[in-house]
Design a protein around this nucleic acid. Structure first.
Length: 279
DNA sequence: AGTACGCCCTGGCCGC
DNA sequence: TGCGGCCAGGGCGTAC
């Protein structure tokens, strides 16, 4: 599942490879991937012949700023991949290759997505933020511990809150489990029950875990690969996610799995306690 | 308004 | 070998 570190890795790689290049043609092989409010022709008209001026990541979204008032918005969903095809290493087009951006000099960006939860659409600069409707960027220098405290001011379970894109952008199921383990906070805790000390630990864990994810080029626990088709390295540094039954790396107790809001949640029952159980 | 939940989609895995 | 059933889950629409 591409979350903030995976999308950031893709963005940084692509920046050096496609900025300044022209999109000669967009090939939409599965029209439902461009759902939203656009016809295929409308998308083609707004994209074809345009140059990619810059890339940006916002939460789990990858944004292509064009030399017009428009922006290509891309979300990789659960199983999405964005592969850079070059004449030296061409990408094979298969039944999961749903959208292809053809670039100058026989290059292309291939949007592959097995489960089709991803999407790509065009929007204008002025309505971008309103359409994305995202909370603050956790790795932004302007994001403070006080900002986090104000986000936590509600009864929602902390795990669900960390995954709520409207409250804080970019954290999904893998990194929320990793962050809560790192902070020593039980995933079922009401967000507003965290002490100031725990709030501080959570803030630090968010920064550290996400930065580590970027440093190790993302988590390839499912289908995630970078623009060259290579796996990340963060799955080997996972401390809790999908380690059900395995010993906790801190205390040795078996890692437990529960469902929260329909999502599998992994935690250590000893290291992630409720406050009144703490010694 | 804020929260909860079913649904979309497909491959992989398990048991019979 | 084949097949039904279940699991994985981000975000969106709908219901309360």
């Amino acid at each position: 599942m591409p979350e903030l570190p995976e999308v950031e890795t893709i963005k940084q790689d692509l920046e050096t490879q496609v900025v300044g290049k022209e999109i000669s043609k967009i090939e939409i092989r599965l029209p439902r991937m461009t759902r939203k409010h656009h016809s295929q022709k409308e998308v083609q008209k707004k994209v074809e012949g345009r140059t990619i001026l810059s890339l940006e990541r916002r939460g789990k979204f990858l944004l292509f700023h064009l030399d017009s008032a428009n922006i290509i918005v891309l979300h990789l969903g659960m199983t999405g991949q964005l592969l850079h095809s070059t004449p030296q290493s061409p990408v094979e087009i298969d039944k999961y290759s749903h959208v292809i951006f053809h670039l100058d000099s026989d290059e292309a960006l291939v949007f592959r997505d097995i489960r089709q939860f991803g999407k790509v659409y065009i929007t204008g600069k002025t309505q971008l933020e309103k359409e994305l409707d995202l909370g603050p960027e956790p790795l932004s220098p302007t994001f403070t511990e006080e900002d986090l405290a104000s986000i936590l001011n509600r009864t929602t379970k902390i795990k669900q809150l960390l995954m709520d894109q409207k409250r804080i952008a970019g954290i999904g199921n893998i990194y929320s489990d990793e962050i809560l383990f790192e902070a020593g906070i039980h995933p079922l805790r009401p967000a507003n029950s965290l002490t100031q000390k725990e709030n501080h630990r959570l803030f630090t864990a968010i920064q550290n875990v996400l930065k580590e994810g970027i440093e190790f080029r993302g988590t390839s626990v499912d289908t995630y690969v970078d623009v060259s088709g290579r796996k990340g390295g963060m799955q080997n540094r996972r401390r809790i996610y999908r380690r059900t039954g395995e010993p906790c790396l801190q205390c040795g107790k078996p890692v437990q799995k529960i469902k929260i809001g329909g999502r599998s949640t992994h935690f250590c029952p000893k290291c992630q306690k409720w406050p009144d159980e703490q010694d």
